[in-house]
Design a protein around this nucleic acid. Sequence first.
RNA 1: GGAGAGGUGGCAGAGCGGUUGAAUGCACUGGUCUUGAAAACCAGCAAGGGUGCGAGCCCUUCGAGGGUUCGAAUCCCUCCCUCUCCGCCA
Length: 423
Amino acid sequence: MLDPQLLRNDIEQVAKALTKRGFKLDIVAIETLEEKRKAIQVKTQQLQQQRNTRSKEIGKAKSQGKDAQALLDEVASLGDELKSSEEELNEVQKELNDIIMEIPNIPHESVPEGESEEDNEEVRRWGEPKVFDFTVKDHVDLGESLGLLDFEAAVRIAGARFSLMQGGIARLHRALIQFMLDTHTRDHGYTELNVPYLVNADSLRGTGQLPKFGEDLFHIEEHDLYLIPTAEVPVTNIARDQILSAETMPRKYVCHTPCFRSEAGSYGKDTRGMIRQHQFEKVELVQMVKAEDSYDALEELTGHAEKILQLLDLPYKVVTLCGGDIGFSATKTYDIEVWLPGQEKYREISSCSNFEAFQARRMKARWRNPDTGKPELIHTLNGSGLAIGRTLVAVLENYQDSEGHIAIPEILKSYMGGLEAIH
RNA sequence: GGAGAGGUGGCAGAGCGGUUGAAUGCACUGGUCUUGAAAACCAGCAAGGGUGCGAGCCCUUCGAGGGUUCGAAUCCCUCCCUCUCCGCCA
């Protein structure tokens, strides 16, 4: 949610800034409603004030044993007028709020112009795609010929876009999770969390998935709960309706969860293998910081995600998402893309974003600034560190040999009980 | 799921339907005292919003939403949550 003050005082600027992401702000609609709101709110508050003072007078008169009938008559007509004024105000405020909740965040000035993926800006590359002297397989062929990935069974059990791992691959999957959690807690100063995988609508509104993106979520209607699409939702909402004390800032959380996404609208996209699933696992990094620190924190957090790929010796590049490709709530996002030999492409494996106060404002997530004594909105950030399924794919494809066996990356061997390779 | 108790400011905890946005304590901030600190004493201290250049003035909020009333933290209804006991259960 953008600052309503900013929207009132500088709507032209906001509209201009939002064109960068291809969003057209309906200035006229907002200004019209805003004008209405102002008039009705002033009127309503005046009526409330009248009611309050009269009521106090009545109370005073009665306690002194005087006759209050004259005062009571005076206030009689106020009730209906106030009630209809309040209702009108509620309506206008709701209308305005509905619009505001669907306005995306303003991209940071450093975000490149552009309409789509094509226009994202490469920031850096790490590692060289390995040259294989045999025809490489993709992870599906590798997994199935090892007998350790069974998509057919997954379809039978659940349906499309699910997968079933076993043996060495299931263990490798688990090893990646442990390795990432250990690295981020031990080396990067994050606190490990375990959180609910079902969340309420308020939490999803807080981080920005609702109201606009409900169709991407799995919803359990009977209990009105949603399966989390990312750990970002439960973790960031720790701060919802809270005033954090300064000593607990910045907060850095790492959390492994499964993630559930309906993938509505991605029919036919990445249908092969485990790149795009309804259920996948992710180790998520979340930071809650002071406003002035959030861009440094974004660089730091992105570096923490990159470190995982470096330790796994997987080649990657980092791109800055352009205005047209950036997510609804973010001001700036770096995607990390890992090299997949099976596709001969770099594919997204992490997305690291600064949301500034956008989520915090929706969530009323604040901290108390000791300098002013006043609560101030925090800035929130998050990034995958990393997506486990895709990391597994990357390891399978990058560490394959001509036999279709998978070498275990050095750093994971201790997590694999010393195993050298998956046969 | 059944029975009972309860949800009030950063925390703890009062609160006859009427100057109660809310006693008191703790925490916090400033001051006095002290070589310094502690203790003691004095003072201040909720959040959100409207309006105004501004000092300010005003509105809202006591789990959430409705209702009764001139007036609701206080009365009524619905829902949510917490705690205790019973049942079930990984």
